[in-house]
Design a protein around this nucleic acid. Structure first.
Length: 600
RNA sequence: GCCCUUGUAGCUCAAUUGGAUAGAGCGUUUGCUUGCGGAGCAAAAGGCUAGAGAUUCGAGUUCUCUCAGGGGCACCA
């Protein structure tokens, strides 16, 4: 996807900016200077608000063309000063200055602030979103294994994928949210084996996923104690392969228990899917693709010599160094493996949605090579859509000491425990801070705060950086965290409520705006750009950052600027700004999949 | 051995995609509540951006190498 957006450019003020640009071009022409490539950014905030460009490139370019050696920073500053003088005070700006080679143009705050605030309030929950592109993308994420526990290690794909969907949707794409549960494999057979032997007739009650996970751990324990049982497991796998009705029926029933448990947790997390693909459904089509690869001469069938079916990708591409290496696409016993199924799944997605411009896979970094192999193999097979497949890489969630969570062992932090702890903790705080709320409201707030506190740290860092889970920081509601942003939203709401819930009509900010007030408008105006950038880079981090920045600046504003007590007409302008800030906070939190409560 | 990835304040992370004096939170220290909600605010202290070269007017950011961590590399998922 090409990043068709403008970084750092205040998109709301294109007209004024373009006019200035024309004048600068005219200046260059008149003075025999080369045509500059101007990039606009914001001024490091110093209490005023504006846009800025620099002339270092122009200075060095001019010197090069003239064959002269110059001190570029001096020359750039000289140019900035001459251009500042040439421009005078352009329409829409109240001041122009030249500093260290930069040309700073300060906005006329009265009209600009009004324009920003009006735009936010007119667009409401759509503020920040881009025009519909009429293009579809799919995001596959979460991919839980049935018959296993769901622990905090599984959480990042779910949270990251959900936020990416929200962001892509807001940026203008039509998004298909896809899940791909691992509903068959050795882990399932082991589970069934244990169930048939020791738990026949039992059913999960309320805590489904925990129960499913505990039986899986138990199966592993029994097999570790008595390795001879492996034969029984293999025999059961054989019965599955033959589609023994008893096994298939039990599998269907127990699989559904897991899926029901997942749905419960997705509901708790407020995460939803449009489309489910199942591992078990891709087995047969996968084998068909493998046959096709063999026929096309891409795959080599070594089964005659007790070997698997493989694709020597590097050899196919004529590469001398190891890059894609060799991918096994079918086991020597002709059973399917993960790669077999992923080949079929990629194809199935484009059969279902042929118009997709991108097919994303939110899967942890350990599978990078695997996906490169799958996509490259499909490309070799002549599927042009293979180039539209992209692995969205993220790092693992580990426990302190770099311990990887494994469902097999008991060292996991279960998602249901995390959610319960977080919401209970949040409930205790609400009881203390806001005892007047009724119990239903307190529950809702506790849920919003608890879930937000879980989600935010997973989103507020680079995808490629590890998250270390520990209870202390997971349950810390202070500082740079979701509750801080939610609290800013609550305070904004509180002011509006006390004002009678009526937002005054549009008006100019024709008074001396306070520093934090201007900065708040500035940050809000950047939000639409950040949405586009987050979508182009597939980085919810951008949204987590701007959300926090807006919250922090709103809090400064809250402390510095009285709203309800101040005289008119300042009161009306500020009330509108508060409403706009509240909207911006709510919208940014929504993109992160976090609820913005009205009180807390 | 090859490939990918990370290294920024004591700790956890940012940094307008190559720009102005590298910023937040936690922790530490000191203040702030008869102000719109203190889940907060103000301030102090804390940095040779792992190291060395290169490109550039300009590098935390790009390239090369070194060091250190993590991951992956034939029938697990």
């Amino acid at each position: 996807m090409s990043p068709a957006f403008f970084v750092g450019e205040p998109i709301m003020f294109e007209t004024e900016q373009q006019q200035v640009e024309q004048q600068i071009l005219a200046f260059c022409k008149e003075n025999g200077l080369p045509e500059p490539k101007l990039t606009w950014g914001w001024i490091p905030f110093n209490g005023h608000w504006g846009t800025s460009t620099s002339f270092f490139q122009l200075a060095s370019q001019a010197a090069r063309e003239a064959g002269q050696k110059v001190n570029v920073s001096e020359k750039a500053n000289e140019l900035a000063e001459r251009i500042a003088a040439y421009l005078g005070t352009p329409a829409g700006f109240e001041r122009v200055e030249a500093v260290k080679g930069y040309l700073n143009l300060y906005f006329s705050t009265a009209g600009y602030a009004q324009r920003v605030v009006d735009a936010v309030l007119e667009q409401g929950k759509d503020f920040g979103g881009g025009a519909r592109r009429g293009e579809r993308v799919m995001v596959e994420f979460s991919q839980p294994n049935t018959h296993k526990a769901f622990h905090v290690g599984h959480l990042r794909s779910a949270i990251l994928g959900d936020a990416l969907c929200n962001i892509l949707e807001a940026s203008g794409y039509d998004v298909v949210r896809a899940n791909y549960p691992g509903d068959m494999g050795l882990h399932v057979i082991k589970w069934l084996w244990n169930y048939m032997k020791h738990h026949v007739g039992e059913k999960p009650e309320n805590d489904i996923t925990r129960w499913m996970g505990s039986l899986y751990a138990e199966a592993n324990d029994r097999l570790a104690e008595t390795p001879e049982f492996e034969a029984e497991v293999r025999a059961l796998y054989g019965r599955w392969d033959q589609r023994d009705p008893e096994v298939v029926e039990l599998w269907k029933e127990t699989r559904q228990w897991s899926l029901d448990g997942f749905t419960q947790m997705y509901n708790e997390l407020d995460i939803h899917f449009d489309r489910y693909y199942f591992n078990s459904e891709e087995e047969k089509p996968g084998k068909e693709i493998v046959n096709e690869l063999i026929e096309k001469g891409i795959a080599q069938d070594e089964r005659a010599n007790d070997g698997p079916v493989i694709v020597k990708i590097d050899e196919q591409l004529g590469l001398t160094k190891d890059k894609y290496r060799v991918m096994v696409v079918l086991r020597s016993d002709s059973t399917a493996l993960y790669a077999t199924e992923d080949l079929a799944l990629a194809k199935q997605k484009f059969i279902d949605y042929p118009d997709m411009v991108q097919s994303f896979y939110v899967v942890d970094v350990r599978q990078s090579l695997h996906f490169q192999q799958v996509f490259k193999t499909l490309e070799l097979a002549g599927y042009e859509w293979a180039q539209r497949c992209q692995h969205v890489v993220y790092e693992l969630v580990t426990l302190p000491g770099n311990v990887i969570l494994a469902s097999r062992d008991g060292n996991v932090v279960l998602l249901e425990d995390l959610i319960r702890e977080a919401t209970e903790r949040a409930l205790a705080v609400v009881e203390e801070k806001n005892p007047d709320l009724d119990s239903e409201q307190k529950q809702a707030v506790a849920r919003a705060v608890g879930i937000g506190a879980i989600k935010y740290p997973m989103l507020a860092r680079e995808n490629a950086k590890m998250v270390t889970f520990d209870w202390k920081s997971a349950l810390d509601f202070n500082g740079q965290a979701a509750p801080y942003i939610q609290y800013a939203h609550v305070r904004a709401n509180s002011i509006l409520r006390k004002a009678g819930g009526v937002v005054p009509a549009s008006r100019a900010f024709d008074y001396e705006m306070a520093t934090s007030e201007m900065q708040l408008v500035d940050l809000i105006s950047r939000f639409p750009n950040e949405v586009q950038r987050a979508a182009a880079e597939l980085k919810p981090l951008q949204i987590a950052n701007i959300a926090y920045d807006i919250a922090q600046t709103f809090t400064s504003f809250y402390n510095e600027c009285p709203v309800l007590q101040v005289e008119e007409p300042v009161r009306s302008s500020r009330l509108r700004l508060v409403a706009a800030a509240k909207q911006a906070l709510a919208n940014s939190l929504a993109l992160l999949g976090i609820t913005a409560p009205e009180a807390m």
